[in-house]
């Protein structure tokens, strides 16, 4: 059990894999560039579809993986391929020789300011899904005006399914996140009108459709099929949203107190950097390329390098955790094969 295992990224994928490897008797090393564990999930408030507190998920994962060697605030400086192993140099000066690398570097949230027509960073009443989660957690955001919330809009597919944003694929989690956040806002502001502007509603997961029906029936969230084409600000600082109501074939306009942009999931530049250093290929969607997208998503084409989680594409928490467990087993069997 002396084989080194290096896990790059301490999000939920890295933590779950580490916890599984610990229980198999290994002592994995986690390299995390930020100052905390849990990755993006540590930023969220409640998780769809059961409103599980994100904090509970992260703290139980952190507890189960606490015996791993964890380096926070640490990045990879370079990766050298040796004869049958890799030499990984860390930013803190430590170097590690390992035969196994598990890449769990996750994703980035699309930078909504790039879609200039939506006015993120320009108009005060425009925020993102990530900002709203932050507000749910802390109650701090000057752009969210607690008193005077009469109308709220959600814009789906911001920076996803958009060739202009250089991101033609669907981010998968944002439709259901919009439904979740719309319900949460309705719970806080029952008298507000809440609109979701969507192109398609992708309710693929367990209980998602029920969540959507509940948003309609129990909370009165209004779904308008049409992509918001432009946002402007009126004299009293509210935002005016224009779209086509494609079901009636008519232009539609509405004035809102808050507009939430559902920014998508894109490959993180940190993943790409690691990929470049370890000479891992990148897929056409910008995410890391697996050995096979159907049969073997957790193997890279490189000997001893494996993936788990959102570094290979948009994924939900349960999907990420399942991949992390599968990757831990894969690593275990790989080490058995070496012996």
């Amino acid at each position: 059990m002396k084989e080194n295992i290096v896990i790059i990224g301490g999000g939920i994928a890295g933590l779950e894999a580490a916890a599984q490897l610990l229980s198999l008797g290994y002592k994995p090393i986690i390299i995390e560039k930020s100052d905390h564990l849990g990755g993006h999930v540590a930023e969220w408030n409640c998780l769809f579809p059961d409103m599980t507190p994100a904090r509970d998920i992260v703290s139980s994962l952190a507890a189960r993986s606490a015996d791993a060697n964890i380096f926070l605030n640490t990045e990879i400086s370079f990766v050298n391929k040796l004869k049958d192993s890799y030499n990984i140099m860390l930013s803190n000066g430590i170097s590690i020789i390992t035969k196994i690398i598990l890449v769990t570097t996750g994703f980035s949230v699309f930078d909504a300011a790039k879609k200039e027509e939506y006015g993120y960073g320009v108009y005060d009443q425009v925020i993102t899904n990530r900002d709203l989660e932050h507000w749910f957690n802390t109650g701090e955001d000057k752009r969210v005006n607690d008193c005077g919330m009469n109308a709220v809009g959600f814009v789906h597919c911001v920076g996803s399914r958009d060739e202009k944003a250089r991101n033609p694929q669907c981010s998968k989690v944002c439709c259901i996140t919009a439904v979740k956040q719309a319900i949460e806002l309705k719970q806080k502001f029952p008298d507000a009108m809440v609109y979701c502007f969507y192109m398609d509603l992708r309710m693929f997961g367990k209980k998602y459709e029920d969540f959507y029906i509940s948003a309609q029936r129990d909370y009165g969230v209004r779904f308008i099929r049409g992509r918001v084409s432009e946002v402007s600000e009126n004299i009293d600082g509210r935002v005016i949203v224009k779209a086509e109501d494609t079901l009636s074939g008519k232009p539609v306009k509405v004035t809102l107190d808050l507009l939430v942009l559902m920014a998508g999931m894109v490959c993180s530049p940190d993943s790409t950097r690691v990929a470049n250093m370890a000479r891992l290929p990148v897929d056409s969607d910008g995410f890391l390329k697996s050995e096979d997208n159907v049969a073997d998503i957790i193997s890279s084409p490189k000997e001893g390098v494996f993936y788990a989680g959102a570094c290979t594409g948009p994924k939900t928490v349960p999907e990420t955790l399942a991949e992390a467990r599968a990757a831990a087993l894969k690593v275990h069997l790989y080490i058995k094969g070496l012996e």
């Binding site: 309609q216 029936r217 079901l247 306009k253």
Partner: peptide, 28 residues
């Protein structure tokens, strides 16, 4: 022919919704 949702009077729709709550489950 534009629809301005700020000006739409939904009072009768809300009355209808009260006795037919399923109406907004329609997914077109």
């Amino acid at each position: 022919s534009a629809i301005n949702l700020d000006k739409v009077d939904l009072s009768r729709f809300e009355k209808l919704h009260g006795i037919e709550p399923d109406i907004i489950k329609c997914m077109a």
